[in-house]
Simulated scan of single mutants.
Amino acid sequence: MKYRLHLCFALSLACSPKSAEESTDTQSTTGGTIGTSGDGPVTMGHSQTSANPSEPVTTSLGQTVTTFPTTEATTVSPTTEGSATDGDPSDTFPTSATTDVISTSSTPDFTTTGSPCIDPLDQPQSAPCNDASGCGCQTGRCFVVPALGGFCGECLVDADCPEGGCTVPNPVVGVGALCNTGKAGDGCQSDTVCFDAPANDCGVVLEVPGIIKVATCGECEADVDCPAQAPHCTPDYDIAGFTGQKKCKAPDSVPLDSGCDHDGSGDLACASGFCGEATIMNLLFLGICGQCNSDADCPIGQQCSEPAVDLDMGLLFGSVCL
């Protein structure tokens, strides 16, 4: 019952990651410059709060303080001072000060944007996850299956695995994606990661269209890959493992209650001559050799049952005349 509940419940789920929020922080700086003189009055930048920011202010020491409104990142030129011309150093002449605004610029915004992880952090292999970035997984990879959710795993694609291909998650028992060594039955995306002869063809054995596709290294991908003495490319299912592999079979060689290619030459491969189609929730379809494909294939007065899959036991049951 465990497998049935797990897969049926998984196929009914739909996960939608929460949208991330953005935050923006800004900073600005202001500045001024100070010019100094040895003997004369001093003209300098000064903070001013009066109604007229440019109005000179005379200090108690007789210094003339001229204020300039500062702008962000303002640069001013050095002051040019006056000098006495009659030889008397005690004479005081007003110092001319020239202040030029060279450049102004606005301080750039310091904006912080980012998406918080929607999963708990540092989760182990096979832990449930939903954030496709893998931020919550120790492996840094979350294999998300549409409508089923995801699992922390070792890989997303074959390129993540240095010695072979990537075996997709098993939603029946909740096992995350694993890297393999390219042997028969190992997961793959292309023939290039299937290293063991004769299982060096990557073929799809299970598929829920638009949701998940299980492809593994096997003897063939289609009938054309098989030799004349065994011309039928036939799926050999591993229901409990949510996997399997394709093998080349001779005509009339596949027994009852075994996998067959219901979209291809399955009838010719089955010893009974009948390859029926079983379905799980009208999403996952499997070919199974049985006694009939319709009532017309049965003795008069009998009816042809539907092929079935027992997820609890991981068994296939072909059609039967009843």
Results as ranks from 00 to 15, higher is better:
Asp131Arg: 00
Thr113Asn: 12
Asp91Leu: 15
Ser77Glu: 13
Ser90Pro: 03
Cys129Gly: 07
Ala132Asn: 07
Thr64Asn: 13
Asp131Met: 00
Thr74Gly: 07
Ser106Tyr: 01
Val76Phe: 04
Ser90Tyr: 05
Ser77Ala: 14
Pro78Asp: 14
Thr111Lys: 15
Thr112Val: 07
Thr92Ile: 08
Glu81Thr: 14
Ser60Phe: 08
Ser126Glu: 02
Pro78Gly: 08
Asp86Met: 08
Gln125Cys: 10
Cys117Phe: 13
Val101Phe: 09
Thr67Lys: 06
Thr99Cys: 07
Ser115Arg: 01
Ala84Arg: 05
Thr99Arg: 10
Arg141Asn: 12
Cys117Asn: 14
Pro94Trp: 13
Gln63Cys: 06
Leu121Gly: 01
Thr98Arg: 11
Thr92Cys: 01
Leu121Lys: 01
Thr98His: 09
Gly82Ile: 11
Ser115Ala: 11
Pro108Ser: 13
Ala73Tyr: 03
Ser103His: 07
Gln138Cys: 04
Thr64Cys: 10
Cys129Pro: 05
Ala147Met: 12
Cys135Asn: 01
Thr92Ala: 04
Asn130Cys: 15
Thr67Val: 08
Glu72His: 00
Val144Ile: 14
Asp88Ala: 12
Val145Ser: 04
Phe143Ile: 00
Ser60Ile: 14
Glu81Tyr: 11
Thr58Met: 04
Pro89Ala: 06
Cys142Pro: 07
Asp88Trp: 05
Val76Asp: 01
Thr112Glu: 02
Cys142Ser: 06
Pro78Phe: 06
Pro94Ala: 15
Asp122Gly: 06
Glu55Asn: 10
Cys137Glu: 01
Thr67His: 03
Pro116Thr: 13
Thr67Glu: 05
Thr75Ser: 10
Ile118Gly: 00
Thr85Asp: 14
Asp88Val: 09
Pro89Gly: 05
Arg141Val: 13
Pro116Asn: 11
Ser83His: 09
Thr139Met: 00
Ala84Leu: 08
Ser77Arg: 12
Thr75Val: 15
Gly136Val: 03
Thr107Ala: 11
Phe93Ile: 15
Thr71Trp: 05
Gln123Leu: 12
Gln125Asn: 11
Gln123Glu: 12
Glu81Phe: 09
Val57Met: 04
Ser77Leu: 11
Gly134His: 01
Thr74Pro: 05
Pro89Cys: 00
Phe143Leu: 02
Ile102Val: 11
Thr85His: 09
Cys129Arg: 03
Gly114Leu: 08
Thr71Val: 14
Gln63Trp: 08
Val144Tyr: 04
Thr85Glu: 11
Val65Arg: 02
Thr104Lys: 01
Leu121Thr: 03
Ser83Lys: 08
Val76Ser: 03
Glu55Leu: 09
Cys137Lys: 00
Gln123Thr: 12
Glu72Met: 00
Thr74Phe: 13
Ser105Gln: 14
Ala97Arg: 04
Leu148Lys: 00
Thr104Gln: 03
Ala73Glu: 15
Thr74Ser: 11
Thr107Pro: 03
Thr99His: 09
Thr104His: 02
Gln125Asp: 10
Thr59Trp: 10
Ala97Asn: 09
Pro69His: 11
Val144Ala: 06
Ser103Glu: 14
Gln138Ser: 09
